[in-house]
Computed example of a mutant assay.
Amino acid sequence: IIGDGQVSLGSQIIKPNARKVRKLKDGVMAGFAGATADAMTLFERLEMKLSEHPETMRACVEMAKAWRMDNRYLRRLEAVMIVVDEAGTNVQLTGTGDVLESQDGIIGIGSGGAFATAAARALIDVDGLDACAIGRKAMGIASDMC
């Protein structure tokens, strides 16, 4: 999982080095795109769900259900999350309450997400590139385009 660290307000970059990827518990990482304060709230909520449901996928489903059902608070949040774990779970949690599992282990979110996903898929079969190198190259390509 890799993040660009860029926080923007409209077309202006207001922070180039935000920490968008976080460890939620041993073996579970999450990253976000969207409103930073909203994402921090979602990180906290997902951490609570992980303490209730140790299985990452189950915690994500419970988080998405809560996100959809809370009309007053969570439904107003504007953020998207990627959650991964050591067991191979890799899902995208959306603001509409979707839990989208990647078919090939590659997920991209945010304004450059589609570019990064396409680049990573093109690089996945290149000999000599590990996941970290693929992620960095894909982010570089996305940043050149978006």
Rank of each mutant, 00 (worst) to 15 (best):
I2A: 14
G5T: 01
G5H: 04
Q6V: 15
V7Y: 02
S8E: 03
L9W: 07
L9A: 13
Q12S: 14
Q12A: 15
K15M: 14
K15Y: 11
K15W: 10
K15F: 08
P16F: 05
N17F: 14
D26I: 08
G27N: 10
M29L: 15
G31S: 11
G31Q: 07
F32P: 04
A33G: 15
G34R: 01
G34D: 02
A35Q: 08
A37L: 10
D38I: 10
D38K: 09
M40Q: 15
T41R: 11
L42H: 03
E44H: 10
E44P: 00
E44R: 09
R45S: 12
L46T: 02
M48A: 11
L50R: 00
S51F: 09
S51M: 14
P54Y: 01
T56Q: 01
R58F: 09
R58Q: 13
R58C: 05
A59Y: 04
A64F: 02
K65R: 14
W67V: 00
R68T: 03
M69N: 12
M69L: 14
M69V: 05
R72K: 14
R75T: 15
R75W: 03
R75G: 04
M81D: 01
M81A: 08
I82G: 00
V83M: 02
V84D: 07
D85C: 07
E86N: 14
T89A: 04
N90R: 08
T94Y: 01
T96Y: 09
T96S: 15
T96I: 10
G97A: 13
D98A: 13
V99G: 05
V99T: 13
S102M: 10
Q103F: 08
Q103E: 14
D104K: 06
D104W: 07
D104C: 08
I107Q: 05
G108Q: 00
G110T: 02
G110V: 02
S111G: 13
G112P: 02
G113K: 05
A114G: 06
F115S: 11
T117R: 03
T117I: 00
A118F: 04
A120Q: 07
A120M: 07
A122I: 04
A122S: 13
I124H: 10
D125F: 02
D130K: 01
D130V: 01
A131V: 02
C132F: 11
A133I: 00
A133W: 02
I134V: 12
G135R: 00
R136T: 12
K137G: 04
M139I: 09
M139A: 12
S143H: 05
D144W: 01
M145A: 13
C146R: 03
